[in-house]
Design a protein around this nucleic acid. Sequence first.
RNA 1: GCCGCCAUCGUCCAGGGGACUAGGACGCCGCCCUCUCACGGCGGAAACGGGGGUUCGAAUCCCCCUGGCGGUACCA
Length: 420
Amino acid sequence: MRVRFAPSPTGQLHIGGARTALYNWLLARKHGGTLVLRIEDTDPERSTPENVEQILDALRWLELDWDEGPISQVERAGRHREQIDRLLADGAAYEADGAVRLRVPDEGETVVSDVIRGDVNFPHSSIDDFVIARSDGSALYNLAVAVDDLDMGIDHVVRGEDHLSNTPRQVMILRALGAEPPIYAHLPLLHGPDGKKLSKRHGAASVQALRDAGYLPEAVRNYIALLGWGLDAETTFMTTEQLVQGFSLERVSRSPAVFDEQKLRWMNGRYLRDLASAELARRLEAHTGRSGLEAAAAVAQEKMQTLADFWPLAAFLVERQPIDEDAWNRVMKEGADEALREARSALAEVEPFALEPVEAALRGVVERLAVKPKQVFQPVRVAVSGSTISPGIFESVVALGREETLARVDDALARLSTIA
RNA sequence: GCCGCCAUCGUCCAGGGGACUAGGACGCCGCCCUCUCACGGCGGAAACGGGGGUUCGAAUCCCCCUGGCGGUACCA
């Protein structure tokens, strides 16, 4: 089996393109086939090394590898020209107004056999003689694809449904060249939440945007695998091995799917929480460009859905943050100073400065003061984190350490007394 | 216009003649848990686009309509 994936060198790898890449990859890996990567654009202006590299980078991030390529259609212009000349010599094509057109018979039809959609018939009466080469001699997409697929021995073509209507043209070129077409599978398109074709204005529409937004590659892979395909009624989380094992083109849906970032977020959160905290820290460090995040990562892990959630939630564990004034005003009311004083002395003495003793010490304060837990914990939270929203207060205090915690509580106390 | 594809909760995925009172998940709502926010647990609302057939029986098969999408380029 030889499968090819042919992304356009637009710079960004579209999510639909990523799904196509994934399905091609799953197909090849499942059957021990060869995956050929071709950069699909006959225009050297678009097919720049920078643009190509960005696509490859996105594929690598998704951990989708390939066996041959990347091969650029631009590099194959000579071969395309040869085959155009051959079609001309055979009489299968002719020149008109400088451009080369393929002869399409008036009668009959071309049948495209599609694994997902069955046989699709295209009557020739609705297809004109179409252009295969521009007047400057350069090949057009349909010609280039057919020639490349033939030369590379491709037997499986998995691509978006937007190519279905072009397929009979490619089949006709292939037959004119004396070859039989490969097996086709046209995937349903991906739409945005508004039902329109997914694009940049739907937010994170590219793999790069997803990466920047703090999604994990394994979560993205799992999620996009489920856009147009499902193993059964229940299974949602699948490892790459399970994906490879379970995938089948025959089970791919025929109807378009909507990319739902909320579900991706949820899934990403699940993957995030399953990470060992050292691994999470490693990824956070790569994402934020900071180091020494392990303690904070462990504390914040339960609360994050994406890597980008980390900083707003846990920055106070890494460096002191300004206090949110709304939070201060809501929490630092009567009783707050007493709670803070008590908490301070309890924390000053607790030994060792670890999770259970710290929790016991702070709960002791609640008991002694005979107040509700939040009347102690919220002032401490605001003093320490600057916000009413934070990871668990005991975990946070321990991660911060005794010295830093006491310093922040002291500052809050000082501020309270100046106001009073 | 012409050609083609598609049609189950708001969304994704199941179900492909009887097991359907249509299942699971996200999201939403309520309750529980709880130091905030989350996580988690429990419960709830929520769908077979319409009309004709075929059949003892249709979400499932056929036809029509409607709707959505794609193509119809010297774009890919």
